[in-house]
Nucleic acid binder design. Structure first.
Length: 112
DNA sequence: CACGTGACATACC
DNA sequence: GGGTATGCCACGT
């Protein structure tokens, strides 16, 4: 189990990620006021509402975190492609599609 | 208390 | 590009 406060923070951050963009686990943690806790993001995503933007979360190198060919990986790829994010060999070009707002601005707005 | 593990990241070779 | 090492934090053994 993950703290409910943490879950809420991550849900809030995910709600800010625009359609057509993606974000890494590490930066998601940073924006949620939890620097260095990338590994915790995965735990959170297993407990978060299915309606969140979980499919926009990728590894820092742009790869989908699930094993290639798995049902989850396929669903994530389909969702990303359907909103305009190119997925080639289970990987996304982070230079093009990564959502990278100013960290401090977000932290200030969310009061973390 | 010491490890091992995990939807991870970074640095270095 | 791949492979190893280390840092990170929560949990289970």
């Amino acid at each position: 189990m993950v703290n409910k406060a943490v879950i809420l923070r991550v849900e809030k951050t995910l709600s800010l990620v625009p359609e057509g963009y993606v974000i890494s686990y590490g930066y998601l943690a940073d924006l949620s006021g939890l620097p260095g806790r990338a590994r915790m993001m995965g735990k959170c995503l297993q407990e978060i509402e299915v309606d969140c933007n979980w499919h926009r979360v990728l590894r820092a190198d742009g790869k989908i975190a699930f094993p290639v060919g798995s049902a989850r990986a396929d669903e994530q790829r389909i969702r990303l492609v359907s909103e305009g994010v190119n997925v080639k060999n289970g990987r996304v070009n982070m230079k093009k599609f990564a959502w990278s707002p100013d960290l401090h601005t977000i932290l200030f707005e969310l009061k973390y």
